[in-house]
Design a binder for these strands. Sequence first.
RNA 1: GGGGUGGUGAUCUAGCUUGGUAUGAUGCUAGCUUCGGGGGUUAGUUGUCCUGGGUUCAAAUCCCAGCCACCCCA
Length: 478
Amino acid sequence: MVEPLKTRKRDDITQWYNEVLVASEAMDFSGVKGFPVYRPYGYFMWEVMQKALDEEIKKRNVKNAYFPLLIPESTLSKEKEHIKGFNPEVAWVTLGGEKQLEEKLAIRPTSETIMYESYSKWIKSYRDLPILINQWNNVVRWETKETRLLLRGREVLWQEGHCAFETEKEAESNAREMGLVYKKIMEEVLAVPVLFGKKSESEKFAGAVSTYTVEAILPNNFMSQAGTSHYLGENFARPFDIKYLDRDNKWRFVQQTSWGMAMRALGIMIMVYGDDKGLVLPPAVAPIQVVIIPIIKGGDSEKLLEYVKKVEKLLVGEGIRVLLDDRIEYSPGWKFNEYDLKGVPIKLEIGERELASGSVTLKFRWSGAKKTIKLNSLQSLKDVLKSIQKDMLEASKKASEDRIVQIKDREGFVSALKGEKNVAKAAWCGRIECEEEIKQATGATSRLILLDKEKLISDVCVFCGRKAENNAVFAKSY
RNA sequence: GGGGUGGUGAUCUAGCUUGGUAUGAUGCUAGCUUCGGGGGUUAGUUGUCCUGGGUUCAAAUCCCAGCCACCCCA
């Protein structure tokens, strides 16, 4: 049973966000902080996303596998930077029944370590490479700060891919390619435009040489990371002793990558598109793409229902996810509101008027437009859904570009990030100390370093005035 | 790490200052009537008032301790 939203998006976006997810029956809270329930409506969207991403992964000859949930402490701590980064948020199993365990077991915060123990056993020759493995699983990171539905939970549903190669070049290009796959999923499935780039030294993954990231701009001008792909170099190969005999009979360490995308992507999409009436779903992920709402007046409803069922059959035949809501206990007005809340892209209203003229009335969730078309042009609905998807992406691409302010001077940089919560693009030195000072001064951090070989915005760092090394985008992180 | 708000039928909520039979709405079940943007009505239905302790003849209410959730700030 759905309830109207109490909070407007622009008044309090976090409150609105919780309300819209719960009210639309996508998600619900459980009794445990950071461990929400994915209701069928929400989980369906995850499945759509998962399927699309899984296909991309398999296209690249990466195979799915599954590794254990629990990781011995000794294994988890093998790579120093890695354990240092994750230790504060690891959940531990210390009891088996009533017996204290000899060695405590971590609930995986990510699976590098346990997978690489295996890789070490499996890889002996250059002929064993590359190893291309992905797993769909859940990980636990014990966030002590606030948690958010989808965006930041203690339990995270995601995939993690772990590949090992002979050469740095192969590994680097795999890391980069997977980052671009994430961009594709965000844009083509979720219709959310993202920026692609590299993480700074202090923002990169614990244990990585470098991290590629895709980041979306949220309506409140915070930026959120939608997926990351790491080039690990030999950082894990050395402590885990993953080496092979090369063609010239020499032992070499493998070059590794790991990459992951989580259900957070869905949260970003909801933040970007939802409005005061509820979710607004891009057709590609919408569990219901078209809902048919018959306007039943007393009298002869049999003919109308027959007509409506014909429409339903036609759309099902087109491969459209369609729902016929012919419940008589709810009024049409009630249903309109319900499906607005659930973000259904197209509502089909069919009453006596449409029956008489052999037509249907379409109401579009995203644009708000309404139009009546003849029954015989109904097959085109599939294309209409596609064009909605495209229009949504185009519109938010433009909106997100408009949010990025290019800045050259320190004062403007600080005030933009601090006051108006803007997203600032500027030339930067890339130093850890400089980033720390920027954070102190503005609350924002570098979200990504742009890769495009475009000209530096300035020769000097926007903040510290030293030599600029790259163009970077700064914003608060959500 | 610091702070704020809150926990009462399935859901939201009143009651708490000033202790004394648990308030209203929503939902749910069964009708009737409605139906082109959340309609009306009749009957029925639901409570460890977060937990533990204390004060008291009597605690949802006062006191102490704890748990949990949501939010904000660093």
